[in-house]
Design a protein around this nucleic acid. Structure first.
Lengths: 142, 142
DNA sequence: TACTATCTCATACTTTAGAGTGAATTAGTC
DNA sequence: GACTAATTCACTCTAAAGTATGAGATAGTA
């Protein structure tokens, strides 16, 4: 902050010096009136551009961020979860019962229970709701 | 397009006319050199600002927004869910068992079951996992 | 080939969830 | 005061979930 104020001050001072110097040159006949006007026009055009860029507030665009979910085999592997167990987990999260999962995957109810049990131990969960919560936290489910 | 080019042309023409006019006034002694310089400075500062705003692409700041979750009483009301039922729903989503919910809210297990049952009917769910899924979809849970 | 992991299924048992019904209490509304 | 919604709780069952254990089949790996 102090730095920028100092910068502004120095810039303005230099501008005034330049203007005064040109003024002097004009009176001593070194430059013509046209050149004088041209220099002033140039300086103030640049100043105007600079002010214009400074004073405009940037347009703010708010972007909704999709909770983009990406599952790679690595994530599953790191938790020791097999493909079939992940299938079961996904259907659990959708709200399916064990029987519905069995029907969906063409396996028996007992098999679903087996997968579920091993899932719970791998996810440190005691219930399916907890397993879902854990899986989402670990990025295994969207 | 043609309209804006015409506008530019007219603007530039008027600028030149004004400058020439001031030039004339200066020579006839109607304005001092300082005023002359000041007018030129003003005109070109404005021009500079205008050019600066025109020629630069508008500043855009992109802000990523978390899919922030906001719960208002309206949402709950629209689904007929009471405060206490919502308490139960929240703990369910965290993976708590009915007994744990009862302990957390200092109510009996039976009461939790009652709340749960009415929740399910209000959310068109047959199971707690489905209720959680539905609630998240309806924006009742983060 | 032997080993290992995965997937599958079964059986028996315990625990939890959920449905259905009824009821008492409280607070706010007409 | 009557009415209503919300909260609380109890009791009884049934259905579902979850545990434990064992075991057969298959496919990939050392």
């Amino acid at each position: 902050m102090i730095k920028s104020i100092l910068g502004y001050g120095i810039t303005i001072a230099m501008l005034l010096i330049i203007l005064k110097w040109i003024d002097y040159r004009l009176f001593t006949g070194f430059v013509s009136l046209e050149v004088y006007a041209g220099i002033i026009a140039t300086i103030f055009t640049v100043l105007g551009v600079w002010i214009g860029l400074r004073l405009t507030s940037p347009k703010v665009v708010t972007v909704e961020r999709e909770n983009e979910f990406e599952l790679d085999a690595e994530k599953l592997k790191s938790h020791g979860i097999s493909n079939r167990e992940y299938d079961v987990l996904g259907l659990m999260a959708k709200g399916c019962s064990n029987q519905e999962i069995a029907d969906e995957l063409y396996i028996s109810l007992n098999t679903v229970k087996t997968h579920a049990s091993s899932l719970f131990s791998k996810l440190d969960a005691k219930r399916r709701t907890q397993a879902i919560q854990q899986a989402k936290q670990k990025g295994l489910l969207p």
